[in-house]
Design a protein around this nucleic acid. Structure first.
Lengths: 205, 205
DNA sequence: GAACCTATCCCTTAAAAACAGGATATTTCT
DNA sequence: AGAAATATCCTGTTTTTAAGGGATAGGTTC
């Protein structure tokens, strides 16, 4: 029984590439593709593949959120994250949201095949490169932010002062300052400049 | 006479995708691919294609630098920038360095074909989406930074204070402050936070 | 040689952020 | 119900930035 594979990616060339790689593979049944989250969910109402290759960046919802939704509604469908970025932040988020694997877009055919087969069997697959970057950087990376902290962080990045933020959020300046203090601590940042740099590079902004 | 096309991209799936799109196209001669700048330059010593599709992010040199080098050594070879990012910063840099076109990785087959044919005729091609994002964002264009300003910008982002920067660069604190002042003005930023955010998102950091 | 850019330096003042130490509600989870 | 996490608020002090004003010297370009 062949493994049914579906792909969600907004890059036509990547879809085409994967199709050309997998189409004539034994053991793989090519189910088609979607170019955004909505059409993926629409497709899943009709048919369920065994494995979905899912880009993390999609035009409507992010692959990270889509992954969560798919996992909740269709537990039998396994998701493999697909991305250009070998960044622990994205990989971590994707796995936290129920992905069974993560493959970079520079993966070889055999790597991709291995990933699909492994995941279809209910196991977890991660290419060596990815696994390594996760290990090397899992010590103190990626703080967990509260909703409010994220909100404040975004406003800081947009150039607002504590005073302006406090007015926008209807809270006191001292509260904003506390959130700021906590953000600095969570990111282990020395000041605003490094805070913003770190949060952008880790995918928070 | 078919147009000779070569591709430089470190993503196997994209290479595969483009090959599958172009391989059987009339008027296109598929020359092969390179997965990094070095092997691209090596290939060019032997043979010159008419058009190179070039990813902006490569493992060794950036596509932006490679583009410049290719343009200098082989004026008859036209380069089309290829990227996931529809970011004015990259597009601008690529075009400044002599690219004849810019295509996103979600381009359709016909768009890609049009790009190749247009560029092979010595004209410039830009997909609508890209052209639009260039137009929409040319008001707050990319500021031109001096060497010293870039240096200071990086040190600011790393979390150093003016005092620390001045010691590192062996200049006075007031000088650092002036550079900072100029940076804020050039980026039209209100404060450090937005300065860093803008410079990261525009590819300076 | 004049105009222009770059880098350097200086001053002042007010605003903002960092740092240190709290306290008290309100959710949320167990 | 109680613990833990989250959000809120407070009072200080010290350091850092922002924003305003200028000045000088070396280099490049026209």
């Amino acid at each position: 029984m062949p493994i049914k594979v579906f792909i969600v990616d907004d890059h036509y060339m990547v879809i085409e590439g994967i199709r050309s790689l997998l189409q004539h593979e034994k053991g793989i049944e090519w189910m088609g593709h979607a170019m955004n989250a909505a059409s993926c969910l629409g497709y899943l109402k009709q048919q369920q593949p065994d494995v979905i290759l899912m880009d993390i960046s999609l035009p409507d919802t992010s692959g990270i959120d889509l992954c969560k939704e798919v996992g909740g509604k269709y537990p039998a469908v396994f998701v493999i994250g697909l991305s250009t970025f070998n960044q622990q932040s994205f990989i971590q988020k994707m796995m936290d949201n129920g992905a069974s694997g993560y493959v970079l877009k520079n993966a070889t055919k055999s790597e991709l095949m291995e990933a699909i087969q492994t995941v279809a069997n209910g196991k977890t697959f991660m290419s060596d490169e990815v696994a390594q970057s996760l290990k090397s950087n899992n010590s103190s990376e990626m703080p967990v932010l509260t909703r409010r902290e994220k909100e404040v962080l975004e406003l800081i990045a947009s150039g607002m002062t504590n005073n302006e933020i406090s007015q926008r959020l209807f809270i006191s300046v001292t509260t904003v300052d506390t959130h700021r203090k906590n953000l600095l601590e969570k990111f282990n940042a020395k000041n605003t400049a490094s805070l913003i740099k770190l949060s952008v590079s880790q995918g928070y902004l």
